[in-house]
Simulated assay, not measured.
Amino acid sequence: MSVLVGKKAPVFKTNAVINGNEIVENFSLKQYLGKKYVVFFFYPADFTFVCPTELIAFQEQISEFEKRDVAVVGASTDSAFSHWKWLQTEQNDGGIKGVKYPIVADQTLMISKNYDVLAGDFDYDDEGNDIFEGAPQAYRGLFLIDKEGVVRHQVVNDMPLGRSIEEALRVVDALQFTEEYGEVCPANWKKGKGGLKATQEGIADYLSKNH
């Protein structure tokens, strides 16, 4: 798997559904450059089982992300129309109605491939014909992108393993803390706790106060 941390996030333009009901063309994360952090996450497919719990959970916490100047953007290899249909379906019928953040359509599979979360891959058969082996779906990848467009955190789960939205918020808090104070965040750091200076003395001081 590619490690994108420290690198510019792969760019793209594609269809997406925004505001829960509007299909737009040429959606790009570049609109957030210099303005917002981005939590960009992939999920396997619309109209499934674990996926709606994640997308709804992100929406339930959207005000917390907005307080932190973070845009949340989802993506799967489904079409924009499939996204739109799912967004019109009531939650008690397996839908995600009420989700308002953008959901990207990656029908070409190239966005998932460039972020290296595609479960399958392109190949050739014995006659030289293009084939696709594996699942044309994305693993549960999540990427925290800073205002300069650089990936600062990534995590990828297998398809059955749902993610923690609280952990996504914690990592946002940690990044913003280090940017503001110039200190690093130790194990299990949470917002409201102090950091430590990246020196031997700083580590010793932290350990003496916390152990």
Rank of each mutant, 00 (worst) to 15 (best):
V5W: 14
Q91C: 13
Y139H: 09
A9S: 12
A105S: 07
K147M: 02
E179W: 05
D116E: 05
K197F: 12
K190S: 02
V70N: 08
E66F: 02
T108A: 08
E54G: 03
K7Y: 01
E22F: 06
D130S: 08
I18P: 00
K191H: 08
S82L: 01
Y43I: 05
F42P: 03
F12G: 01
V5N: 05
D123T: 11
N21T: 11
K97G: 05
G192E: 10
L144C: 06
D46R: 08
N129S: 01
R140G: 04
F12E: 06
F65K: 10
K8T: 14
R140D: 01
L87N: 13
Y115L: 06
D121E: 13
C51E: 14
S82I: 10
K191Y: 08
T48C: 09
A16D: 00
K147S: 06
F42K: 13
V172L: 14
M110E: 13
W189T: 00
K30V: 06
V24T: 08
F65A: 10
I145A: 09
A16C: 00
A138N: 13
P52H: 11
A16P: 02
P10L: 03
G194H: 09
A198R: 15
D116G: 11
Y115N: 00
V5G: 03
G120E: 13
G34L: 04
F12L: 09
G34T: 05
I145L: 12
V11L: 07
A138H: 07
A80M: 03
V38W: 09
D126H: 12
M159Y: 01
K36C: 00
D205I: 08
E167R: 04
N15H: 15
Y101K: 02
G195A: 04
F12Q: 04
R140K: 10
A16H: 00
G149C: 14
K67I: 02
E201L: 12
K191D: 03
F40D: 08
L144G: 14
I56V: 14
I131M: 02
V3S: 08
D205Y: 13
K100N: 11
Y115C: 04
E64A: 11
K193A: 02
L196R: 10
H83Y: 10
N157L: 12
G6P: 07
E66V: 05
D78E: 09
I103A: 11
K13V: 06
F177L: 00
G128Y: 15
V150A: 01
E60V: 02
S63H: 07
V11W: 00
G128V: 15
F65D: 09
D69W: 02
A198G: 03
F143L: 07
Y206H: 08
L144R: 04
A174V: 07
K193H: 15
K67E: 14
Q176T: 01
S63E: 15
P102Q: 04
E167W: 12
A80Q: 03
D125K: 02
I203C: 02
F49E: 06
A204K: 15
K13N: 08
V117L: 03
F122T: 05
Q88I: 06
N21H: 11
F27D: 05
S28G: 12
F47N: 15
